[in-house]
């Protein structure tokens, strides 16, 4: 059974006013535990609305959101516990930091869950480990940190709640390549340790190709198509019509195929491509 599922979800902002805007139209989605699902789409395609559905910040106008088969909007009082089980890291989460020290800020979530102080301290250490924050940083003020470090603190704040479903809206936007790899690597480690289901919204196709198990493409509030990264990136024409691009590795593979090099379709990361070409060249 899917860990978390959207069934025919519709949502409109400001219904009945001149500002009315359809954000989601009949969107269905299912995410398995232990898998990473990527969501891609042009600006305004409904990605951010979709992630707010997953932890009940927004309730769908019609359709259902199921967590372990239970409709999360059926009981409004249970939403607080749903939000502890579905961790949502919003876009630019560094702007939500507020406490005196990094340690206290990361502890905000677990404290709201009513855990004991030993438990909280252990969770803060563990979350800091996943995001690569050193002991020394924990005692600093979050406002003295660099942008990349703030981002890690904000993500650690959600990881410390040990969510069963982790949802991230552009977790690595605006970071340098090294910071990107470290943060995404930390998320992979979290998934491997806890077996959580992970949903990542991103514009970075290279990241999607290397990390996602499956990808959903949104177009004008609807699901355009979905599949494994190789299946999705094989539909290059449709992606480009939607203002999206394919990873560089896929583009290079296309060019190589045009010249008669039989690069397999499932290769869509630079690493896999390099390994394939190295093998091909050593055979010659």
């Amino acid at each position: 059974m899917a860990k978390i599922e959207l069934q025919n979800v519709c949502y409109t902002y400001g219904p009945g006013t001149p500002y009315a805007k359809i954000a989601l139209k009949d969107v269905s989605l299912s995410v398995e535990a232990g898998k990473i699902t990527g969501i891609i789409g042009h600006t305004g395609s409904g990605k951010s609305t979709l992630v707010r559905m997953l932890n009940g910040l927004l309730a769908p106008d019609s359709g259902r959101v199921l967590l372990d088969g239970v409709d999360i909007n059926a009981d409004k009082k249970a939403l607080a516990s749903v939000r502890c089980r579905v961790g949502l890291v919003m876009q630019y989460p560094e702007y939500q930091l507020f406490d005196e020290t990094v340690e206290k800020d990361i502890a905000f979530g677990p404290r709201n869950m009513g855990l004991s102080s030993e438990d909280i301290a252990a969770r803060v250490r563990e979350a800091a480990g996943f995001t690569g924050l050193s002991e020394e940083i924990l005692s600093k003020s979050p406002f003295d940190l660099s942008g990349g470090q703030k981002r890690r603190v904000a993500i650690a704040g959600i990881l410390a709640m040990k969510p069963e479903v982790l949802v991230l809206d552009e977790p690595a936007a605006g970071l340098d390549p090294k910071g990107r790899r470290e943060i995404l690597g930390g998320l992979l480690r979290y998934r491997d340790t806890t077996g959580a289901a992970v949903v990542i919204v991103s514009h970075n196709m290279e990241d999607m190709a290397s990390y996602a198990d499956s990808i959903v493409v949104l177009r004008q509030a609807q699901t355009a198509f979905e599949g494994t990264p190789a299946e999705v990136f094989a539909r290059r024409g449709e992606l480009e019509e939607n203002g999206l691009r394919v990873p560089d590795a896929v583009r290079i593979a296309d060019k190589l195929r045009e010249r008669g090099v039989p690069v397999p379709e499932e290769i869509c990361t630079v690493e896999a491509e390099a390994a394939y070409l190295a093998e091909l060249l050593s055979l010659k």
């Binding site: 910040l57 939000r83 949502l88 919003m90 989460p93 939500q96 905000f108 959600i158 709640m161």
Partner: peptide
Amino acid sequence: RIMDAQKARGAS
């Protein structure tokens, strides 16, 4: 946005 973010961290 900030309220949503803190609600996601279990704030009420």
